[in-house]
Each structure stands twice: as structure tokens, then as C-alpha cells.
Design a protein around this nucleic acid. Sequence first.
DNA 1: ACCTGAACACCGTTCAAGT
DNA 2: ACCTGAACACCGTTCAAGT
Lengths: 207, 207
Amino acid sequence: MATATEMLDEAGDGALTFRALAARLQTGPGALYWHVANRDELLAAATENVIAGVVATSRPDEDPREAIRAVALRTFDAVDAHPWVGTHLGREPWSATLRLLECIGGHVDRMGVPPAAQFDSATALLNFILGAAGQNAANARLVPPDADRSAFLHVVAAHWTSRDPAEYPFVHRIADQLREHDDREQFLAGVDLILAGMANVRSRDGS
Amino acid sequence: MATATEMLDEAGDGALTFRALAARLQTGPGALYWHVANRDELLAAATENVIAGVVATSRPDEDPREAIRAVALRTFDAVDAHPWVGTHLGREPWSATLRLLECIGGHVDRMGVPPAAQFDSATALLNFILGAAGQNAANARLVPPDADRSAFLHVVAAHWTSRDPAEYPFVHRIADQLREHDDREQFLAGVDLILAGMANVRSRDGS
DNA sequence: ACCTGAACACCGTTCAAGT
DNA sequence: ACCTGAACACCGTTCAAGT
């Protein structure tokens, strides 16, 4: 497991091969199947490991709003450090994801959100976090792994502005903002948007 | 392209093989490389096709809030009909995603959101939509493709409740809600949460 | 300009056989 | 109980050669 995580960190998603992992562990590829059912399970376990670390430090005695901002940001940073986590989070069937939901849900509950609204609120936060994580991981695949933040954003901005300005006016208008922005701040702004909405929507329809 | 989309719809992501596609088109696998650079480009083109249809019907004369709800819901439904779109949306480098962002951004602009806040607002909506799409696609992989909505939700709920209730109290508490809920409504509730937040956050910090 | 199809360099996974 | 490693059934991609 530890070796698998190392390999993922070093060379990304595609580099984790049963053959390569077996070679690194000095065994045959067949030996791995004694410990893990298949490749998906291996990826899922590695992802859950990372996310377990992210939610573990979430304490129920903080201000719930701050606690939510904090787990969200830790998730963001974890995906930044391990892009393969972002990729796999969007594909895996409720192991790491469920840990995140439980953590967020607990804080939402302690915020005083009425029970009927807790489900929608917690999943909205979760979906936003997962979406941002995936997008970040996708962006990471566009640049060499050793590029710095600024170079990274410039590459993404270049993708945006490569489109026809007439067809993509909005995207062109905000491309400058993208180049200079702090994506952790942007991410937190999104979390705040949802938190602000939770304070306001409450009753919508009675259907 | 059309044949590729057909195959993806019939048998999912893994079924689209260059060999299988070539066989269906009565050619050799090498022939495809004249028209497309590689498998990723094929998936990206198919995804962009679907998303282009989703954004095409978005008119700038509607109420912007309703227009955002409508594109979001069309994306949700498109992913529901083609789960592979949800999978690929979270991995692709700004072709389909950029179309969505442009569409959403245009509406956000017409909502009267101040320019400085448009970037964060539009990307928050985008990330939420992408996250929900990915999660939906992941869920679709858990159930047989012909299962109905109710069976589908019961399978997901079973995953949730299979965990230790002591470790996952929140998840257990909302599992009943999951089983009975309308996931399109839940999705729209998330969109509304963000829209409500946009009306409220405005000024946060001046750093 | 576009297609053919054999060949290359891989995969995940299985399974008899070993220790 | 756990490991070995050859073998099976695939992949995406390339490329000389064809039309």
C-alpha cells in the first residue's frame, strides 16, 4: 500500500502497474492478488488512505463553519499533492467519498441546519469539493509535474484563450483573473458561497 | 463519431475499443488514426458533442437564474443518459468543460453579479455540476444498466448503511432520505444553494 | 488522401505448481 | 498461508505497404 502510494505520487495514475509494483516489491504480479482483489481495489484503498488523513484532523469542537472550510481546504491540498486522488475520487464507489460526506455532514448538523435540509446541504458541499478536486487533477495532467503555480495557471489560461473570442467572450474576459488568482482562495470562495446559501434558502417549495 | 457514441451508450466506457470500433466500421484499427490522434481525443470529442447539445439550447433572453437552473439540469440529465460523459468530464482538459463555463458565465454576467465576483461564482457552479455529474456516473457503475431509479437508490443506500453506524452516524441518519429522494430535485437544490449564496456573499475580505 | 493489417510493447488477471 | 511465473486474452499505437 505504501509503495503503491509512492509510485502514484512519483509518476501518476498510469504508472501504477501490477507488474511494476510487483517488481518494486520483489515479487511476481500474481502475489499481489493474494492481498488485493484487483487494480480498482488498490486505487480505492490508496485514495481512502489519503482521505482518511484529511478527515481525521477534523475536530467537532471547532466552529462548524470553520471546520467545513478547513476539511475542504485540506482535501484541496491533498489533491494538489496527489493528483491521482482527484481522478479516483470522481470514480470510486463510496469509500473515500463517504468519509468526506460523514465529516461534512457532522459539521452541517452542528451548524444548526434543519434536518430536512442537511442532506441537500452536505451533498452540495461534497459535490462542489469533488468537482474542484477533479478539475484540479485534470489540470495537473496538462503541465509537467515540476512546474510552479504561476506556470501552471498560465498553461490553463492559454487553453482558455486559444478558443475563438467571439464564441467564448466570458472565458476570455476572466482569463486574466485566472492567471493572477490564488486557486485556494477561489476554492474557499466557492465553499463560502454554498455556506452563505445554506443560511438563506431554508424554505423553497412545499411540493 | 456517431458510432463511437452509440457504443459508449450501449456498453459503457470500457467497451469503446479501437479494435471494436474499427470492426464495427468495417476497417482496420489503424484507419482510425487518420481521423483522430488517440483514444483520449475520441472520448473528448464524444463528450464535447453531448455537452454542445446541452449548452446549445441555452438562450440569453431567459431569466438568468432560470437559465442556469436549466443548463445545470440538462447537464444532469445528459450524464444520466450517458454515464460515460460524467466520467470523462472530470478528466478532460477544457473542451466540453469550457463550453459549460462559458454558458454559465454568460448567465452569471446577466444576473448582475459584479465582475470581480463572476469568476468565483461561475466556477463554483461549474465545480458543483461536475462533481454531481461524476458522482452520478460512479453510481451508475454500481448497478446493472437496466435498473430503475428506485432500485438504483436502494443499491447506493445499501452501500451507505453497510458501514459501521458508530463511525458513520450522519450517513446512516440520511440514508432513508436518500432512498426516497428525487435526485434531480436534490441536484437543483444544490444549484439554488449556490445561487442564493451569490446573492449574499458579495463583499467578504479586502485582502 | 486514405486504408490495411501485421507487429510492437505493453496491460490486468488467472492458475497450476511450488514453499 | 502465501508466493511464483508462465500463460491467456486482451489493449493502444505504429508503420511499411498498399490503393
